[in-house]
Write a protein that binds this DNA or RNA. Structure first.
Length: 496
RNA sequence: GUUCCCAUCGUCUAGUGGCCUAGGACACCUCCCUUUCACGGAGGAUACACGAGUUCGAAUCUCGUUGGGAACACCA
């Protein structure tokens, strides 16, 4: 069942509108994903709009990062800025609010002319006093400006005298309940007196978020506004502006929040939340999308692992959950491991190699070795960066005997076990031994020393990787050179 | 404080009045596989916040209570 389109929107047009004041976090990415999926599912358009009216905090650097993260996730937009040049593309250009100032001013002027807005000369002190009063009355912050009754020419004269003013939207005559039919929440009723006269244009002439948002959504013919629940209270202001300007109202859908373990809005203080962070740690974009979708949406068959194609085909607003979702990093990791294990060996090697290089881990430049090593380690990795610790085991410069080895070093038979190991390895003619060689040597040690079980295997493992627990020796030893094995074993003998 | 939103295992969720002694997934526990650790396989424990209604019947509808969250700017 698809949502009924509100006249006059003939096609689905949705948008993601980040403000480039930092990194893209998973909450934002999820909103972008849902919008993207909704557009794809309904043959609509997905628009990326840049909300950079806060000039002080908006940076190109941040915009670049967001664009890069969205691309990494495979969330592509039809209109907005070019992913490479960042130039505007699409019929509603420009898509950066900082370049749409004239538009906002024009509509502000319209509102001023029709008496729906007014210049307000209140001082900070006067505003503060009103807020204090509201607070002590126990009511909602509610600005009542004496200037709302001024005529436009009165105000203009004042402006000519060099006074500065904000433009406020007049709400006094709109004393009625506003009802929003939210796509996700159903009917939401805002009491009429919830807000007072609010600012449209700042004293420096810069428009404010709620105002830009309405004008842009209207001019860009956005049919569905899918955004985070934190915007729900904003909707009343926006509804009033739509009404004041005579714009058709889009359908709204307020998506539940992504929460931290303490059930508060996700924040970076409690752990990584930037998409970029997950990319750097070696998460797969498919896993991220799959996981983000599952925070608030569910696959109709109950599947947990599904592709982007699946999502594009099956996404629907009816399956969106109205309650908040805690961001569970443990499950994300598990999900990533599922995708990682589904990769073929050469793709996986190519994915982890940069991580090894960055961590300065030495490894053989030999594709046969590399493929073999992937076979051994694939079940051990959940994210690409896990490879660093795993492959460090092969790097002689990183070899050390870990404290947990002590109890096995103390066993009296250990020294002779390792000595026989060294002797047998020395007799190998090739640089690397085979798995069969290893099994043979293992039996030799057993026979010569009479040691078996734990007391045999743990010391051997210490001799190879410096700790009593880790990857199965018969898998890892054939990947290690004879020279390296002997050197390590001798180091261990020295401390027995 | 005010307004709004939300409420099923620890977590993500399925569930739209009878298929529910509530299903799946992560995590947890046990066992199997494995002379370690993982991977894999088989089991297990754990939830409808509470109270009233409506109904022959309620996790599902209504109301209230409680709890949690968000928003209350010349930020977005």
């Amino acid at each position: 069942m698809s949502e009924i389109l509100n006249y006059p929107f003939s096609e689905v047009r949705v948008r993601f509108a980040p403000s480039p004041t930092g990194y893209l976090h998973v909450g934002g990415a999820r909103s972008a994903l849902f919008n993207y999926l909704y557009a794809k599912k309904n043959n609509g358009k997905f628009i990326l709009r840049i909300e950079d009216t806060d000039l002080a905090r908006s940076t190109d650097e941040s915009l670049k990062m967001m664009v890069q993260d969205l691309n990494w996730l495979g969330i592509h937009w039809d209109e907005g800025v070019d992913p490479v040049t960042l130039k505007d593309i699409g019929p509603c250009a420009p898509y950066r609010q900082s370049e749409r100032q004239d538009l906002y001013k024009k509509y502000a002027q319209d509102l001023l002319n029709t008496g729906r807005a007014y210049y307000c000369f209140m001082t900070d002190l006067e505003l503060e006093t009103q807020r204090e009063k509201n607070k002590s009355d126990g009511t909602h912050a509610h600005i009542e400006s004496p200037f709302s009754e001024w005529t436009l020419s009165q105000a203009q004269a004042e402006l000519k005298n060099g006074k500065t003013a904000v433009v406020r939207f007049k709400t006094k005559h709109l004393r009625k309940d506003y009802i929003l039919n939210d796509l996700i929440r159903g009917e939401v009723k805002f009491p009429s007196d919830m807000i007072g006269d609010f600012v449209l244009l700042r004293s420096d002439g810069m428009p404010v978020y709620n105002f830009c948002c309405v004008i842009d959504d209207a001019l860009m013919k956005i049919s569905h506004v899918l955004r985070a629940e934190e915007h729900l209270p904003n909707t009343l202001r926006q509804l009033m502006i739509y009404e004041g300007l005579g714009f058709p109202v889009p359908q709204f859908g307020h998506i539940s929040l992504v929460l931290d373990e303490d059930r508060q809005k996700l924040s970076k203080r409690k752990g990584a939340v930037a998409c970029d962070n997950f990319r750097r740690d070696g998460y797969l974009p498919q896993a991220m999308n799959n996981f983000m979708a599952l925070m608030g949406w569910s696959h109709p068959t109950g599947a947990e692992i599904f592709s982007m194609d699946d999502m594009r085909n099956l996404f629907s607003l009816e399956r969106l959950n109205a309650s908040g979702a805690v961001f569970d990093r443990v499950k994300l990791k598990w999900m990533n491991s599922q995708y990682l294990r589904a990769m073929n060996n050469s793709d996986l090697w190519n994915s982890i190699e940069p991580f090894l290089v960055e961590a300065k881990i030495n490894f053989p430049q030999n594709s046969e070795w590399q493929t073999k090593s992937i076979e051994v380690f694939k079940p051990k990795m959940e994210i690409f960066s896990d490879a660093v610790v795993l492959y460090a085991a092969f790097d002689d410069s990183q070899f050390q005997i870990h404290p947990e080895s002590d109890e096995f070093l103390k066993i009296e038979t250990t020294k002779s076990v390792i000595q026989v190991w060294v002797d047998s390895v020395s007799e190998i003619k090739t640089k690397f031994m085979t798995t069969d060689d290893f099994i043979r040597i293992e039996n030799e040690i057993k026979n010569k020393t009479g040691v078996k079980g734990k007391n045999l295997f743990m010391p051997m493992r210490v001799a190879v990787i410096g700790r009593p627990q880790g990857t199965e020796l018969k898998l890892i030893v054939p990947l290690m050179s004879k020279k390296s094995l002997i050197e390590r074993a001798n180091q261990v003998i020295a401390v027995c």
